[in-house]
Design a protein around this nucleic acid. Structure first.
Lengths: 225, 225
DNA sequence: ACCTGAACACCGTTCAAGT
DNA sequence: ACCTGAACACCGTTCAAGT
């Protein structure tokens, strides 16, 4: 068979297959030949639909960005920026943590990826509408992405081996329980994410208060500092 | 030449060469053959010193962890945990941001890498000494690592292309200035990191206050809600 | 012990050839 | 337009052979 009447491939089918492969076996398992085999075609066929392998992985990353909920930015009262930021971070992390192996690609930034750009646009717009100056709104988008991608990139708990003899107390006096982290993976990772997100939001609320009161529009009296 | 009197290679020389290659051309440029060529030997020679390529990259990652300053945890007054945490995060980020291409490897966690474990041990120990319960101390180590690795993994600013026509206002109403981010890369990335770190520390200080006052050991009166 | 070349089973990508 | 096999320049790793 040279060329079939109906195309055997489409960008969508390729992205789906690549995504499944990335999720199940990691980035290292994605080769154009392997991917083509999963799709029942020969390796070079992919090049009719994507310029190269990187473009395929970019598309997989963008399909993950497309799963991030952004509704909190257009539905909410702009004064509820902290609640919107919270919900965004939770949704953002859920989307990425479901596909951790693609996070290094995604973390390179949106570039020209449409879904990634929609995420950045919505978050920045939401913060500006809430009254944050553009520079601060940019920082908030960036720092939230830092925290979310960092938390999705690698499980903290799984970063320690499940081997009681691995962490010699003579070398690491405080890691006596570290080998237990793996068993409590979900609790540790979620606890750390929630604790960090709560701290970020509380800290940003303080900055927001200082900004608002400092600029003359006093909403309430400062209670710190 | 089969075997020279003095070994041509050592783990240290291999790590140095691999590190230089990762820094200059990225993870993708590191192949065992290329690395061996840079060292003036044939490809398989590396296998006398490392079990496989992954072990070489692990060693490169650990050499970066070894550059993280940890002195703030043993020198400081434990009550200055927030100052120590700040200084640690800054040093941690500086080490990683100097070698961004290895961050995905490093972010997989310390595993059995000695320098990575020393980092985790020192931070956890510092927080426990300051009075944080073990679970919270674990969260703080984890969330700080999330934020730092996320910020070092990819420049936020460089994630946008430097092309005025790239971001159509019809699609992305708030990204009209996004193409300018690249020029202000350093300011944006540092501003976001500092803003986020400040917010994290302020937020954690609130949690610490609540914990201390809630447990009966009142250090000072709460001044928030 | 530490290096070598040969060999194996892979890669990403190009390209002429087929329909 | 869309697929194929052949081909090119690569990979990581093993292994027997050399000193």
């Amino acid at each position: 068979m040279a060329r079939p009447r109906k195309p055997l491939l489409s960008r969508e089918r390729i992205i789906e297959a690549a995504s499944a492969l990335v999720d199940s076996e990691g980035l290292g398992a994605v080769s154009t030949r392997r991917l083509a085999a999963e799709l029942g075609v020969s390796g070079p066929s992919l090049y009719n639909h994507f310029r190269n392998k990187d473009e395929i992985l970019d598309a997989v990353a963008d399909s993950v960005s497309a799963q991030v909920d952004l509704s909190m930015f257009d539905e909410s009262d702009p004064r509820d920026w902290a609640a919107a930021l919270h919900d965004w971070a939770v949704s953002y992390r859920a989307a990425l943590a479901a596909h951790p192996h693609i996070v290094p690609v995604l973390a390179q930034g949106p570039g020209r990826r449409p879904a990634g750009l929609r995420v950045a646009d919505a978050a920045f717009g939401g913060m500006v509408r809430a009254g944050w100056p553009p520079a601060q709104a940019t920082y908030i988008g960036a720092l939230t992405r830092y925290f979310v991608t960092g938390s999705a990139l690698g499980s903290f708990a799984r970063g320690f081996v499940d081997d009681e003899t691995a962490y010699d107390p003579a070398d690491y006096p405080h890691l006596g329980q570290a080998h237990l982290l793996a068993e409590h993976r979900q609790q540790v990772d979620e606890g750390a994410f929630e604790t960090g997100l709560r701290a970020l939001l509380d800290g940003l609320a303080l900055q927001y208060e200082r900004m608002v009161t400092g600029s003359g529009t006093v909403r309430r009296t400062p209670n710190r500092g």
